[in-house]
């Protein structure tokens, strides 16, 4: 896998924080899907997807985010997006994703309000 995309998973008291950084496109999306499938979510957890380092995201990346949403739903977890970059928030709005995901300015702020997402 090239260095232009990376995933990091971190356990926090409220659940997990998945950080996607770099360019998320058809070439790197499999790595994102892999990371999502590995997430050990438990009932009642909150999954925060931190996008602060995401420089590019095409339809393959959108599909990965939707897969993360489905994965969270299956495990009884909630999902929130954090730090959606300005260039992506416009596209997310266009695609109607803002109705599918709770969005927070930062991952830290997301962890402070998990209850509202259930």
């Amino acid at each position: 896998m090239s260095t232009r995309f990376s995933t990091t998973t971190k356990a926090v008291p409220t659940g997990l924080v998945l950080t996607l950084a770099g360019e998320l496109d058809s070439a790197t999306a499999p790595a994102a899907h892999e990371a999502i499938q590995q997430l050990a979510l438990r009932d009642g957890d909150q999954l925060v997807v931190d996008l602060s380092g995401l420089t590019f995201c095409d339809s393959s990346g959108i599909a990965a985010l939707i897969a993360a949403r489905s994965h969270a739903g299956r495990t009884g977890s909630s999902i929130a997006l954090a730090a959606v970059p300005r260039h992506l928030s416009k596209v997310f709005g266009l695609l109607g994703l803002t109705d599918l995901f709770v969005v927070h300015p930062t991952a830290e702020l997301a962890q402070q309000a998990p209850a509202a997402e259930h």
Partner: peptide, 14 residues
């Protein structure tokens, strides 16, 4: 057409 969602992603798209 604000708020129109991706088609096929979720069951109750608006």
């Amino acid at each position: 057409t604000p708020g129109g969602m991706l088609v096929g992603a979720i069951p109750d798209a608006k």
